[in-house]
Simulated scan of single mutants.
Amino acid sequence: MPGGTSAVDLVCAQRDNIPVGLAVMISMGILLAFSFLFVSPGDEAFTVLVIDAVLIVGSTAFFLVTYYYCTRRAMDD
């Protein structure tokens, strides 16, 4: 972006905070795994559990890819 900072620069500036987000996502994933032990596919909460699993896996993947990209970018500079 001419005359400004790109979104990638703004995200990579927060690279030191990404491991905290990863720790939160991993903790939520562990708690979600315990929930799968008590909810069966016929229950009403199962749909919410599946949606939550998709969101947690997607967020974890986003944080991992972002951290990897920003680390590689910092090493190239």
Rank of each mutant, 00 (worst) to 15 (best):
V57I: 14
A13M: 01
D9I: 05
V54T: 13
R73F: 09
D16T: 02
C70G: 05
R72C: 11
V48R: 12
V8W: 06
R73M: 12
F34K: 08
T5W: 05
V39H: 04
E44K: 08
P41H: 05
G42W: 03
A7M: 10
R72F: 11
L32P: 02
I56W: 09
I26D: 06
D43A: 12
S40H: 11
D52N: 14
D43S: 11
V20C: 01
L55D: 12
V50K: 10
S35G: 04
F63W: 06
D52Q: 13
L32K: 00
Y68W: 10
V48E: 15
V65P: 06
T71N: 06
D43Q: 10
A23E: 11
T47V: 15
I56P: 09
R72I: 05
V54H: 05
F62N: 08
I51R: 04
R73T: 10
F38M: 08
I26Q: 11
Q14E: 11
Y68T: 01
V65H: 07
I18Y: 01
G42C: 00
Y69S: 00
V57P: 07
L10T: 11
I18R: 02
R72M: 14
F63S: 07
I51M: 12
Y69W: 06
N17T: 14
R15I: 12
I30A: 00
A61W: 12
Y67W: 03
A33W: 01
S59M: 04
G21R: 04
R72G: 13
T47G: 14
C70P: 03
